[in-house]
Write a protein that binds this DNA or RNA. Structure first.
Lengths: 213, 213
DNA sequence: ACCTTAAACAAACAAGCGTTTGTCTAATTA
DNA sequence: TAATTAGACAAACGCTTGTTTGTTTAAGGT
């Protein structure tokens, strides 16, 4: 056991530790690395993306990545975490100012479709990369997903639905519809992501069937 | 040019040719191979399944598979083709005897959810394995998918919808909802695949929102 | 009985994978 | 100025991948 160190020394050490803990290591290329990996994971998938692909995207040698992240799996974990944080924030921000439950769902669906179609963001990774692709972090990734889906569950819960409608099924239906947009959405298409989300909500709220003539 | 061969000889030759053309090669383990590969592709995905995994599943050595199929890609192609044929048949069989457009969609959705949740069949592969995972056959796989989606499109087309409802969006919404069921469906859950498909259709047809009090 | 063929085996192939190692340089800290 | 550290490089590691090769065995046709 050493003697009590001076206050300044303690501060300095803490600063250094924080700098190591807050981000994975320091800061500079770290962000670029996350962003490049996120883009590749989102478009090609996790298994189809190699560390060499990622390295090439940030103009770096494969081995150098391991200075910033301890493994490919951890790289995905970091992206997942950041992705969930971002979509949860965006989602909450869009929903909270609204009072009407249907308007809230409409805004939520819009946020969801925006997330799965955003081109340069980690939010897409959450919906593209399946937890089973990373056995080591399977449970953690599922937990991250649940974190977002809980917000969505609350939104559905507050909906004034007819008594014979199962809210559980409604949630899965809307989540599936929104999620699926990542496979067919195109910037050249006739709708914005927001419009798609809002339309989906609209179809659920109002009868789409024409009244009997 | 040779002289006209005897009839028997022609028959024999044709038989042999047919035996080679109808299935990839002969018949015996071929079917087991397709089925095992389909199950693995459907549950783990294409990239996460190795030829050694498939070989182990049929109790065979990895190299032996190449007697029956020229490559891993071709194995998937065969599964995809058979899968599309089967789901198209099931789909048509369920829909054609019905007249009412909404009943037809209901039966179609039920068939779709059945297909994506069936545990030992190639139909699941179509919705699990993305064409981009197999660059060599990307276009062919997409064509197979389209073959089925065309049936679905026709179903939606005949729906008597309100004039402000975009049938294109409705189709993508329902396809997404059904497709997504593969990720959350459980045999221990409260609903059968048919019930799920029918409910989804019901939600689209009737107003789910409770009338204003 | 002979010949052919179906079907599998055993063993290796080259390429690509995630990762580790040791070294060098430029910047920061003391 | 001297010591330390951040950050990247170059090269290899062990392993898995899809696939190929040469050989063997057992059945079928003539």
């Amino acid at each position: 056991m050493s003697t009590v160190p001076k206050l300044e020394l303690v501060k300095t050490v803490l600063d250094r530790v924080q700098r190591h803990v807050k981000t994975q290591r320091s800061n500079s290329r770290n962000e670029a690395l996350l962003q490049a990996a996120a883009m590749l994971f989102a478009s090609r998938g996790f298994l189809a993306t190699s560390m060499r692909d990622i390295a090439k995207a940030v103009d770096m040698l494969p081995g150098s990545i391991y200075y910033h992240f301890p493994s490919k799996d951890d790289l995905l974990l970091a992206i997942y975490q950041a992705g969930v944080e971002q979509i949860s924030a965006t989602f909450t921000e869009a929903v909270t100012p609204l009072d009407d439950p249907w308007q809230r769902l409409s805004a939520g669906m819009a946020a969801l479709v925006r997330a799965v179609t955003e081109e340069s963001s980690g939010t897409r990774v959450i919906f593209k990369v399946m937890p089973d692709d990373v056995p080591r972090y399977r449970d953690e990734l599922i937990a991250f997903r649940d974190e977002f889906e809980a917000l969505f569950r609350d939104l559905i819960e507050q909906l004034p639905l007819q008594p014979n409608v199962d809210k559980h099924l409604v949630r899965l239906m809307m989540l599936g519809a929104g999620n699926h947009a990542q496979l067919w959405f195109s910037r050249e298409g006739p709708y914005t992501p927001d419009e798609i989300g809002e339309q989906f909500c609209h179809y659920l709220q109002h009868a789409t069937a024409r009244a009997e003539p």
